[in-house]
């Protein structure tokens, strides 16, 4: 088991290991979010995905999300593992675990973490469809950074 709380891995994610990183005696709740590979998106069938990351920066950005959660929910503990490489349908791509003394913070913080992953963590998904491939995020109609940088936490 890798002890890092914020981890990019090419291995299958062991969900319980992520949970174990955050559980502690004063936790009354551990919320886990598990992101999996979906087969159908807007009528298109995915055969498999490839994830690529800028690994050291992706891990430091995951840690940044952990710090942001610590500021918003001071008693929360966060661990996040994201898998890269080839993933098949229903494979686990990301596991977020947040513990806190009470459940509300654990629920809210894990939702916060997945939304931030989609904004600031340098990981890219390549869809392999029945009829072709595409790097998601590569198309003009998706996310842009008009200000030059991803928005700071707290801006809208």
């Amino acid at each position: 088991m890798n002890d890092n709380f914020f981890l990019i891995t090419e291995e299958e994610i062991q969900i319980e290991e992520v949970f174990k990183k955050v559980v502690h005696p004063n936790a009354g709740a551990v919320n886990t979010f598990i992101g999996t590979v979906r087969e159908m998106t807007k009528g298109k069938r995915t055969l498999y995905l490839q994830y690529e990351a800028y690994v050291p920066m992706a891990e430091s950005q995951l840690a940044q999300i952990g710090r942001e959660i610590g500021e918003k929910w001071p008693e929360a503990r966060t661990a996040i593992t994201h898998r890269i490489g080839r993933l098949d349908i229903s494979d686990v791509a990301v596991v977020i675990a947040v513990s806190s003394p009470h459940r509300a913070a654990a629920f809210e913080a894990s939702r916060y973490a997945i939304e931030r992953i989609k904004e600031i963590v340098p990981i890219w998904k390549k869809e392999h469809w029945e009829d072709g491939t595409m790097w998601v995020g590569d198309q003009k109609e998706t996310t842009a950074y008009p200000g030059g940088t991803p928005k700071e936490e707290g801006q809208s």
Binding site: A53, V94, P122, G137, D138, T142, T143
Partner: peptide, 10 residues
Amino acid sequence: VALIPPVSGG
């Protein structure tokens, strides 16, 4: 330097 196109993790 790294060129970071819009990200799509998660």
